[in-house]
Design a protein around this nucleic acid. Sequence first.
DNA 1: GGCGATGCTGAAAGCGATTGCATTGGGCCT
DNA 2: AGGCCCAATGCAATCGCTTTCAGCATCGCC
Lengths: 336, 336
Amino acid sequence: MMSLETVAKRARVSTATVSRVLNGVDVVKTSTRARVMKAIADLKYHPNLHARSLAGAVNKTIGVIVSNLDNPFFLDVYRAVESDCHAEGYEVIVANTLYRPEQLAASVRMMIGRRVAGLALIVSEMDEGIVQELTEGQMPVVLYDVGAAGGHVTKIRVNYRRGVERVVDYLTTLGHTDFGVIGHHSGLAPISERCNAVLESARASDPRATVRQALDADGLEGGRRAAADLLSAGTLPTAIICVNDIMAVGALLELRDRGLRVPRDISVTGFDDIELAKFCYPALTTVNIPRDQVGHTVFRSLAVGAGAGDALGREFSVNPELVVRESTGPARASAI
Amino acid sequence: MMSLETVAKRARVSTATVSRVLNGVDVVKTSTRARVMKAIADLKYHPNLHARSLAGAVNKTIGVIVSNLDNPFFLDVYRAVESDCHAEGYEVIVANTLYRPEQLAASVRMMIGRRVAGLALIVSEMDEGIVQELTEGQMPVVLYDVGAAGGHVTKIRVNYRRGVERVVDYLTTLGHTDFGVIGHHSGLAPISERCNAVLESARASDPRATVRQALDADGLEGGRRAAADLLSAGTLPTAIICVNDIMAVGALLELRDRGLRVPRDISVTGFDDIELAKFCYPALTTVNIPRDQVGHTVFRSLAVGAGAGDALGREFSVNPELVVRESTGPARASAI
DNA sequence: GGCGATGCTGAAAGCGATTGCATTGGGCCT
DNA sequence: AGGCCCAATGCAATCGCTTTCAGCATCGCC
């Protein structure tokens, strides 16, 4: 491979001068600059970025670790970060853990090894040990839904409870008092928070409200089975609240197969507002977590160089918003 | 930040020894190794990967450039590559160009700068200059749907024509002879190849076949408008072939709004088999490009170290498969 | 004509690892 | 006891770049 020196020799200058031309710093005589640029072009020279970030002080790249790029939530957050960063000349490197803790650890090590300027952990399989290690360290960090803010760590917390309240309140005003919940015991805090919040919000809204739970499966098929369980167990709820959109779509499928009309016979809600929610039939009423808000916060916390960095060390709370579509309507009057 | 030397000093050994412990090479006395490991743990030391890849000969990371991670096709290919690579201890770095040629160029420069072991370009906005430069260079490269194989460049080409033939043949056996095509003039070769293939396959299947085109818009709304155009122009086709799934979904939406039943009144097909195709209503009959096949080929071409690399320099042709779902059925007998 | 200021360029010291070669010291053979 | 060998470790060069400091013309000015 070629190096600065090759270029320098060909242009009959020192490596220092080539470097200056490359970075546009200092003043280089126009004729010299031209000679150097020609040499660079002739040789198709590309600077070695490893050497550059080894030698240079600043490292304009930030790291983002997410659970799974498949999940549109993580993808959107990542893209928001990326777009902000590119606008300011930062690079982003992303890693996904596939929800595996040991992969999380490996990714963190990798990011530290790359000496990123800052690191954002937007994952659901959070590991306490890692959180602590990062908190004790020096590197600017953004933690999502975990840990504590202060110093070099920014915390973003999502108020899931509030999101659930929005759903329940909305359904209550439509006359619903008889709810079913579809969720799962994954041990993931965000999910269990949602499950619990349904119970509490429902009671808060209306003391007579009933809530039936089906919490034993995950994914589309899980939603389907859970819906089936709810249907076969005595009277039918008038509304089914699902802790994520995928399960809600599964429920929709099952209801359709059983000849129930949504929302006339029964209302269904999801959580997350994935793309599918817009296009499934009927389009899903759900809860949206403002993803670009999360992304922008990450950028503002980590890109300390770029006039940003004002957000570092603070705690941010993001409030989910209700998105009303077609899968919800007034409670039916009578049993089916 | 800490360095090897810090660790070395603390463990009262030389940096060479620490390096050996770190990499598990050579023989280090057990007691020494223990001392070093303790020092590493105490200091929470993480090796600087830039320095490592500068000093070391081998660089076990490969680069993947895609047009847009939003697009499930690109995402799936990327994930297939990543999973293969991680299994063999390779890292993957990904860049998306958002379909912008200048971003493509920047990403290529970045990858070269990082001295990746190999580079895969899976983009639709291909730039001839870049292809040529890469072809003339040294680095192992995988090109998707462009360029020529040989030496250090692997080519993957997708037989779109064949995919379209599958669709048209299938519809023909269902009795369709009156087609509408929804596509767009994007200048993207894969898209125009599909548009053209429809015309030719239809004529090949049945000389009396008619094909009406609506090629002026893109995206979901574009598909919607194109469907509207097709509807308002004289007699209705019995089948609408869309060049991608997004536009097909748009068409479905428009047809539904106009009171047409799919597939009873009219059949609709897509292309790409994105996730949405499975969940929209009715589920879309479409064409799937085997993504993991593409991903595995990338890995086998680029990860020359890992017992792979046998695929480098060859040309691979991947054949799309027809995926029949619910949006297609027998041609209706009479005009509506 | 001498002198500091100014503009450009070069020499060389790191940055943090890897690695070939030199060194050391103990065990074993004769 | 002397010589050898090999295991274990250290020394120092190297990778490709940035950056400080110094050097050398050239220039304007008194």
